[in-house]
């Protein structure tokens, strides 16, 4: 009974259940969409979801790291906006070249994350408060740079925005998707195959235990906020490819979308369990809701929020049941 379950009835470990549920949900949405609407059931629809949400995916990857440690990062949306604003302004005004602007923006984003992580660790302040302050700070900085939308006319950026990478059979993606895919793969690798990744899971699982196991809890916390800051800045760069403008009102509320994607992807808000694949699926589910609504045509875009709201309820409930079962 304890040994022979390898053959026919393989049991799925409980930790994979939420990811599987999300995957099934995504598949079901796709099938329903395909039945209801003409032209929905094509590979390009899925790829378009990626194209339209590449920046969100990158931001959500950073958020996954933070949430896995049991923290939260509310500053991501503002950092995205700040990144678009800095890139646009530096290229428009002094005419800095993109290969200087992009690294600078990434550096600023990571730096902001580093400072927030340090505050969380060194002064033992709740991440919610620290990153809330970071959120106001970054958003405020956008407006000190400029209150209007700044267009991006740099040829490299516009070229990037218009490039199509052709795949087989008429399918195509944008360079942003490629970048996002690389980010996801690297992040998944780091989470599952490095000591940093282990420390992230262990910190989220039980911070006290992790400390007494000699894991570098402090460094890990600082690292995840830095990673999240970097991802937000990179997300900002991708958003400027997509929008071709910098604006203080870009990405308002994106932190909540990112958190929603991570949670729908099955990562526990209390930390310790979750997978990057889940986050990817979470972003896809959010994107597919929007796609379905645009195919529907008559519904207002607020229905997106309503569906996301309902989904979040469902998933939090699922996690509750799931964690109630594992913790006696």
């Amino acid at each position: 009974m304890t040994t022979l379950s390898l053959g026919g009835g393989r049991v799925i470990p409980a930790k994979y259940v939420p990811v599987l549920v999300t995957a099934c949900l995504f598949a079901a949405m796709f099938v329903v969409g395909g039945i209801r609407y003409d032209g929905f059931a094509s590979g390009q629809v899925v790829l378009n979801v990626f194209i339209d949400n590449a920046f969100l995916l990158v931001v959500a990857v950073g958020m996954t790291f933070v949430i896995l440690t049991g923290g939260i990062d509310l500053s991501v949306g503002s950092v995205v906006a700040l990144s678009t604003m800095i890139s646009a302004t530096l290229m428009a005004g002094p005419g800095w070249p993109p290969y200087l602007v992009v690294p600078l923006v990434l550096l600023i984003g990571s730096g902001l994350g580093l400072v927030m992580g340090y505050l969380v660790h060194a002064f033992d302040i709740q991440p919610f408060i620290v990153t809330l302050a970071g959120m106001f700070l970054a958003r405020g900085l956008c407006y000190t740079i400029g209150t209007d939308s700044v267009p991006i006319e740099d040829p490299t950026f516009t070229a990037f925005a218009q490039t199509r990478i052709d795949l087989f059979a008429d399918l195509w993606i944008s360079p942003s998707v490629l970048i996002a895919a690389v980010v996801v793969l690297v992040a998944a690798y780091v989470l599952h195959y490095t000591r940093l990744g282990r420390a992230v899971y262990a910190t989220g699982g039980s911070e006290q235990s992790a400390l007494l196991m000699g894991l570098p809890v402090g460094r890990t916390k600082i690292a995840v906020y830095t990673i999240s800051g970097f991802c937000s800045a990179l997300g900002g760069v991708l958003l400027s490819f997509y929008m071709l403008s910098g604006y203080g009102l870009h990405a308002v509320g994106m932190e909540l979308d990112a958190i929603a994607a991570v949670v729908i992807g099955g990562t526990l808000l209390t930390g310790g369990t979750g997978f990057l694949l889940g986050t990817v699926l979470g972003v896809l589910v959010l994107g597919l809701i929007q796609t379905i609504l645009s195919f529907e045509g008559t519904l207002s875009s607020w229905w997106t929020k309503i569906f996301i709201g309902l989904l979040l309820f469902a998933f939090i409930l699922l996690q509750r049941l799931f964690s109630a079962r594992t913790r006696p």
Binding site: K15, R198, Y201, A202, G205, S206, Q208, S209, A210, L212, G272, T273, T326, R327
Partner: peptide, 12 residues
């Protein structure tokens, strides 16, 4: 509380 990560497996 302080010695194990209860939500992880034996190996980890």
């Amino acid at each position: 509380r302080y010695g194990l990560n209860l939500i992880e497996d034996i190996k980890r």
